[in-house]
Every structure is written in structure tokens, then in C-alpha cells.
Design a protein around this nucleic acid. Structure first.
Lengths: 202, 202
DNA sequence: CTCGCAATGTTTACAGTGGAAACATGATGG
DNA sequence: CCATCATGTTTCCACTGTAAACATTGCGAG
């Protein structure tokens, strides 16, 4: 039951005109507003009221679409993972796969964190749902599959587990350090560091 | 007047007993309470009121010692960094320095994150102060110096920058992935992964 | 010793938050 | 045409961080 399609079509301009009470597709609009608020301004304070005001609706209206604020943030986080996965896939293709493609996905990971710090942080800080026994992709799976595939190209099959974790931890740590201002963003440096593990091909 | 009833003197273990108004050393007590609250329970909700109640003082009293909540959190974060540095130094010594010591500091880093998730997260999430032009160590410097020293032992001097960042990012990413439940805590696995970079000596 | 001042702690109050009810409005299918 | 249901609104409450005014204490100067 309730296997609702929760993928959000964002730039979908809803029927405008004189919608007084019923907003075409709140939920989607709220998520869009949330993403926009996360993207703009580093001081990304997103509260229910502010979000609701952005959409032009009363605060408690959001509760018709999300059980509570956490659920709303979960939805935003999921969208973030989806975008990250998309960027990585794109980078992989553009680099033509192989070692170079693998390295490119790593760099894309860190660049995403740098470009969308609030969204990246939100996406990973959220506690893993742990539910979802189904094969329903949660958005992050794209990234994970790319990771495994890439690792398989660079490392011997027997050490794939450790190598995959190694690669993931490397880019994730780099990303966190960058957006917590522990290190300055410097794409060349990132490329060098990532290259140390992901294969020296440039 | 008025408030003279037997208000419970909570876990007050003061050197000098019987203080009514003036708490010997609030600030320190508040920080201790905060650390304890962070250590216990993963749902580490620390609000001013709760913290003040722990210490047995009114909420606004904290404002005599911290300009605002952020400052309080900063103090806690700094203490976290200090502890992390201490643990790493200890690990380094116990392993006898060298490659093995370097690897030990890396493992200690991740273990700290696993043992004190809330404190670790707080310590690094806090935006870097950037101030503090003085040589006054901020606690994290111990860790950083150990890192540089360790890297110097394992890698050629010319690539120290990239190698140090690499090592740091690796353990930091591992730590974040562990405490965000992206990967399960498994010390053996951590040791293997860290060993891939920090030198294969075991 | 006494007095006054500075440090510290308390009360009270206020704006803002997430969220629960109860009510209002619009769409829709019999 | 109308009952029903999904959606949005009002109102309310507990709670939070924090400012302002007041209370209490310790300490140094006369």
C-alpha cells in the first residue's frame, strides 16, 4: 500500500491563476523552497514558518504533507543524495569511465559539498532511515553503485570492501573538512589528493 | 527571600560546601555538565535550561560566563578537540612512534568519534573561529602537529602537504561515516582501511 | 569593622519555534 | 445536488534563547 511516487518534479510550474485555497502541489513547492533556501545564504535557517511563508501558505499546512519537521528534512536530504548521485554519474560518463572516470566521481563528490554545503551536510547528517527493506532506491544508491564499480576497475577484486570504504571515506572526509572550513577549497589540491588513491591517471 | 525552601542541591560535590548563591566555579561546572550530557544518550539535546538545571542554577545565570549559547558550544567543542589530541598523543606513544604510531593515531581518531559521537560532531561542526592570532593552542593543534610529524615519517618530504591532507581526510571521513551510520563500526575494518594509507605495518 | 562596589545569580518577560486541535474551504464522485 | 474528503487556516500551548531589572554575596578601601 501507499507506494507513492515521491520523486519530486521541481521546476514544474503548477497551474497558477486564482488558486486561493488549494495550492497545486504543495509538498513539491515546499521542497523546492527548502532547496532554494539551502542553496542561498550560508546561514541556512530553515524553519517551518519561514518555509511556509516562502510558499505563501500557513505554517501548519505543511503538516498535511509531512508528519513532522524531521520528515521534511528527510525529503530534502534525499533530494540532495539524488543530485549528488546524478552529478557523479555525469562526471563518470564525461571522463569516459575507467580510472579517470573513477577519479572524476571522487572530485565531483567534493565539489558538490563545496557548491552546496548546507544541502550536503543535511543529506549526510540525517540519521539513516534504516527502514526501507524494499529495493526502492533512496537516491544514495546510485552513488554507492558507482563507487563499487569504480573500485572494481582500480583494485583487485579481493580487497574491494576495504578499498571501497577507503575511497568513500577519503572523499567524504575531504568534503567535510572543506565545508567545515578546516581546509580551504582548492580544486587542484583535491585532485592531487584524490589521485593518490583513485589512480594517478590525470 | 522567598526562595529558601530546601531546594535540592543536586550532584554538588564542591570542595566548599553550603554555597547558596555563589557557585564556586560555574563555567567549569557547566562545561562538565555539557560534556556529560553529550556523552550519555545519543539524543544529546543540550539546551540552556537543561544544562542550567543540571548544575542547579537558573538558566540566565549562564550568561554571566558565556555571551550566548554559541559561545558555550564553542567551549565544549574546544574541550572535545583537546581530548582528541590527548588520545592521539597517547596512542602514538603507546605504539612507539614511527609508522605503527602514525597508524595508531589514525585509529584513535576514528575510535574517538565512535565513542563520543556527539562531542566529536560538535567539535568539528562548529565553524572555525578564525580569530585567535596568538600562538595559544586551541586544542586541535596537538592533533595537527601529530599528523604532520606522522606523515613526515611515512611519506617523502616533498609531498607532505597532499599526504597529510590525504591522511586527515581519510580518518575524518571514516569517522563521519561511522557516526552517521553510513557504515558500521568495526575496528578491524577500520584498521585495514587506515593501513592502506598509513603504512602496512601492523 | 563598615561600607560600597563589582561579580555573580534570580525573576520576570518577550519573541520565536514546532506542533496539536478545531474549523473552513474547495474538489469530486454518487 | 450534495456528502465526503483532502487540503489549508486559526488558534492555542509548551518550550527555547535571551534581554532587563533586581537580589545576594565577596572583597577591598576608608
Amino acid at each position: 500500500m501507499a507506494n507513492k511516487d515521491n520523486s519530486v518534479n521541481i521546476k514544474d510550474a503548477p497551474a497558477k491563476a486564482g488558486r486561493a485555497y488549494h495550492h497545486g502541489d504543495l509538498r513539491a513547492a515546499v521542497i523546492a523552497a527548502g532547496l532554494e533556501r539551502l542553496a542561498g545564504g550560508d546561514a541556512g535557517e530553515l524553519g517551518l514558518r519561514a518555509l511556509a511563508r516562502d510558499v505563501g501558505v500557513s505554517a501548519t499546512a505543511l503538516y498535511r504533507h509531512f508528519p513532522d519537521k524531521e520528515a521534511l528534512l528527510d525529503a530534502l536530504a534525499e533530494e540532495g543524495l539524488r543530485r549528488l548521485g546524478a552529478l557523479q554519474a555525469q562526471a563518470w560518463l564525461k571522463a569516459g569511465g575507467g580510472r579517470a572516470g573513477f577519479k572524476a566521481t571522487g572530485i565531483a563528490y567534493v565539489r558538490f559539498a563545496h557548491d552546496e554545503p548546507a544541502l550536503f551536510r543535511l543529506s549526510f547528517t540525517r540519521q539513516m532511515p534504516e527502514r526501507k527493506g524494499e529495493d526502492e532506491g533512496d537516491g544514495g544508491e546510485v552513488a554507492y553503485n558507482l563507487l563499487r564499480a569504480g573500485v572494481g576497475e582500480v583494485f583487485p577484486a579481493e580487497s574491494v570492501d576495504a578499498a571501497a570504504l577507503h575511497a568513500w571515506a577519503l572523499v567524504h572526509g575531504l568534503a567535510m573538512l572543506v565545508l567545515d572550513r578546516r581546509v580551504d577549497w582548492d580544486e587542484a589540491m583535491v585532485a592531487r589528493v584524490v589521485g593518490l588513491t583513485f589512480g594517478g591517471v590525470d
